[in-house]
Design a protein around this nucleic acid. Structure first.
Lengths: 241, 241
DNA sequence: GATAGTTACAAGTCTAGACATCAAGCTTCC
DNA sequence: GGAAGCTTGATGTCTAGACTTGTAACTATC
């Protein structure tokens, strides 16, 4: 423990991690030690411990009943409230995700994109078209668009991985909000060819618009998922307050 | 103990409401007063104020930058991280939602349902089949199933509204977590007839499993949405920690 | 035996303050 | 003139304690 060199991570986050590991080994509905005891165990004040417990609660790993105590929740719905990304989905199913870049260029956006991203006339966007594969089987045809102004050097970077990650590490932009519209349709000829399915097969159309912490609209993505091989999973949590 | 409940709402929730109203009138990126001033304005301590600010932050209405201040976020993505229900979706689009109950009965669950709800042999479920309509146009065919043990009197209540609401008000069960799987398919004959579309039209298949705060599996719902009239909207927020 | 009151305990709320860290402007010194 | 350091002001983290409210078990009374 003494190796903590200038502990950069706050205590409540460290405790959060330790709680996660601790709870992973416990049966559902097990009563945890009371807050004051846990606080003493971790050598912090009760309020700091409660910050960590709050994180565990919003992650759905514990629940607490006033006057009784804090308990381990059943782990059926374990993911947080964020959408599962393509990469996460594939890895959760034991598949290896890959991407094949079809095109990457700077274009004048169509009206739909200009509207969704609230772009003025004359502004351009980067458009990146990729095929997403799982174990080398095409799953999804994805068209990503972002205003060139936010991240002018985007196309100079490798585009086979997570573009969100590029925004975070190289662009200093953290995408925190995303809104999606999902509908069902039949595959068009060109889409069907790229996805390796027959035309008029059922597909999922996903239109996504994302913004950063400040509410600035960062990107819009249109995706076509094949309906025979892909299902879209998401979990949500209603606020307990 | 009848009418004199006097449920005192905590200060941080009251302040949260006042902040919501206050922010609604402000331009994006406006600098808010500093935390100590706000705390004084509301006559609470800084930590209590920060609880309210935290709620505003997770609701996406404000953002704060260490060393600079707290600002009003742009309101483009305003919804929280919860899934939009059918009723909410329809009302947001200016349509009137209704339900038509096709059947409501107690049955022995099939293997899929028994598996998803982790039911032992011999347990029965209530099955409620409904058509959800918007302005009297069929949108969705919904099959709801819940173990009879949680809420034995469910079928005695009116089933045209929100069943979650019945669980909350009459069953004393608050459904907080829900996990969904969405895929695309083609409508089968019987489904197409009920939905008023041609067979082999594109539809969205949604399989939902929900649980309460303790992680107990409460319900499973299979829904068939028509792809030509319905799109499935959802918004998510990544945790800013 | 049922019911109402008492008590212990645990989480929930709230406070006043201390220190840490980051951003930005200002001063000083080379 | 410019870089380095200082100062100010803001959010971020943390503490010890007091008070509030809900739960459950126990007890006394009817």
């Amino acid at each position: 423990m003494g190796t903590e060199r200038r502990t950069r991570t706050p205590k409540y986050l460290q405790i959060n991690d330790q709680l996660t590991a601790m709870i992973a080994d416990m049966e559902p509905d097990t009563l945890l030690p009371k807050e004051l005891e846990l606080a003493e165990t971790f050598s912090v004040s009760r309020e700091t411990l409660r910050q960590a417990l709050q994180l565990q609660t919003s992650a759905g790993r514990i629940y607490s009943i006033k006057g009784k105590g804090t308990f381990v929740a059943r782990p059926h719905i374990s993911k947080g409230d964020k959408l599962t990304s393509f990469t996460e989905d594939m890895e959760a199913r034991g598949l290896t995700p890959r991407s094949r870049v079809i095109s990457a260029r700077e274009i004048t956006p169509d009206t739909d994109t200009a509207h969704d991203l609230e772009l003025d006339d004359g502004r351009t966007v980067f458009e990146i078209v990729r095929i997403r594969l799982a174990d080398d089987v095409p799953m999804c045809l994805e068209t990503f668009q972002t205003p060139t102004s936010f991240f002018p050097t985007l196309l100079e970077l490798p585009l086979t991985g997570s573009i969100y990650e590029l925004f975070r590490t190289h662009g200093r932009i953290s995408i925190t909000n995303t809104e999606q519209r999902i509908t069902a349709a039949l595959a068009k000829k060109a889409q069907a060819d790229l996805l390796g399915v027959r035309p008029r097969s059922p597909v999922l159309l996903v239109n996504r618009v994302s913004s950063d912490q400040r509410g600035r609209l960062i990107e819009r993505t249109e995706s076509v998922y094949r309906g025979d091989r892909y299902d879209f999973r998401l979990s949500a949590r209603r606020d307990g307050r």
